[in-house]
């Protein structure tokens, strides 16, 4: 199998910060807004370099989303950054009416998504944001997996005419995708070839899926790992193509199973080529305080959970073949 090596640990939000700075240099229409979390979002470099294009909105996320919508009128490309919790649930109606329905070219960039936010606990650990955002017509939904991919995605969304929700996280995680990659919105990335099971994963679970594939390989199971960085629009062709080969599926994401990427994939498959699916995600629970690694283990979002799900789904597939 292909080998992805960890080139050190870095946080995805820093990838966003670097991408944003680069956008500032290359595109004069890019403006950035933040709601009192500039440091946490790694937006300081942009703010210092381009103060006239940076808007500190204060703790007023609703105002920030609608100011962003207004900035597009006049040709600006607003990058609105805050924690994923405050970038979605808190401002759903503002996004729905002034951004998605009005089809404004606003880029909602959301850090600290999921339980890996850690110690702050469930009030801040949003696990429903992908669902909320993917339901909105016109909205593009992206969840990146490492520093390099987040940087590339940040640069790519500026030229992509659509409201975008870009989701990333807080902790330092393995950086393993290529530096200076070209990020293709809506195109699934096949990371490993396999024949026995397809593992579709997004965000922080992509690295865990690669590690799971290694463990599975030791017992003779080859897993095809596909990174779904763009949850909407979903690369249905890639999904169907892989599953027609492997015949069973595991989905893995740091999000509620309800409304997550797994449901999107299940929807496509059930209408095209129904196959057994196991979903790794948070099962109808709120998060809680703890260290990111501890929480991922406790909530069943680690490599071991993926291995168990893969073995289970392969058994289900084999059962069907016997019948």
């Amino acid at each position: 199998m292909d080998n992805y090596t960890c080139k050190g640990k870095k946080d995805t939000r820093s990838g966003f910060g670097e991408g944003l700075l680069e956008l500032g240099k290359t595109n004069n229409n890019v403006v950035a807004l933040c709601a009192d979390l500039t440091g946490s979002l790694k937006m300081d470099a942009f703010k210092n370099e381009f103060p006239e294009r940076f808007f500190q909105v204060g703790i007023a996320e609703a105002n920030m989303m609608c100011i962003s919508a207004g900035l597009t009128i006049g040709g600006k490309i607003p990058i609105a950054g805050t924690f994923a919790n405050f970038a979605t649930g808190r401002v759903y109606d503002q996004i729905r009416q002034s951004i998605a329905y009005s089809n404004k070219d606003v880029k909602i960039c959301a850090s600290h998504a999921g339980i890996t936010l850690g110690e702050d606990g469930a009030t801040h650990q949003i696990l429903e944001d992908i669902g909320m955002m993917k339901m909105l017509p016109n909205m593009t939904v992206i969840n990146t997996c490492d520093f390099n991919q987040t940087k590339a995605a940040t640069i790519a969304i500026a030229d992509y005419e659509s409201p975008v929700y870009l989701r990333f996280g807080r902790p330092k995680v393995p950086n393993f995708t290529p530096e200076n990659q070209k990020f293709e919105i809506g195109k699934a990335l096949k990371l490993t070839e396999g024949n026995d099971v397809t593992i579709f994963s997004t965000g922080h679970l992509v690295w865990e899926s690669l590690e799971a594939a290694k463990i599975l390989n030791e017992v003779g199971i080859t897993a095809e790992i596909i990174n779904i960085h763009t949850i909407k629009p979903l690369d249905t062709e890639a999904v169907i193509h892989s599953v027609n080969k492997t015949g069973c599926v595991v989905t893995a994401e740091e999000h509620q199973i309800n409304g997550g990427m797994g449901e999107s994939i299940a929807g496509v498959l059930s209408q095209n080529t129904p196959k057994p699916i196991e979903m790794v995600g948070v099962n109808n629970k709120f998060g809680k305080s703890g260290k990111p690694d501890e929480l991922m283990k406790e909530f069943g979002l680690d490599r071991n959970s993926i291995v168990i799900a893969a073995k289970k789904v392969i058994k289900r597939k084999e059962k069907l073949l016997v019948i």
């Binding site: 403006v31 006239e52 294009r53 808007f55 609703a62 105002n63 989303m65 609608c66 100011i67 962003s68 919508a69 207004g70 900035l71 597009t72 009128i73 006049g74 040709g75 600006k76 607003p78 109606d93 503002q94 729905r96 009416q97 002034s98 329905y101 009005s102 404004k104």
Partner: peptide, 24 residues
């Protein structure tokens, strides 16, 4: 230039448009 109906959003949008005018 923008949908409205759900109340409270227009002034923020107008501020955004005003800032855009200043930048331009």
């Amino acid at each position: 230039r923008v949908a409205s109906g759900s109340l409270g959003q227009g002034l923020s949008v107008a501020i955004g448009a005003s800032l855009s005018k200043k930048l331009n």
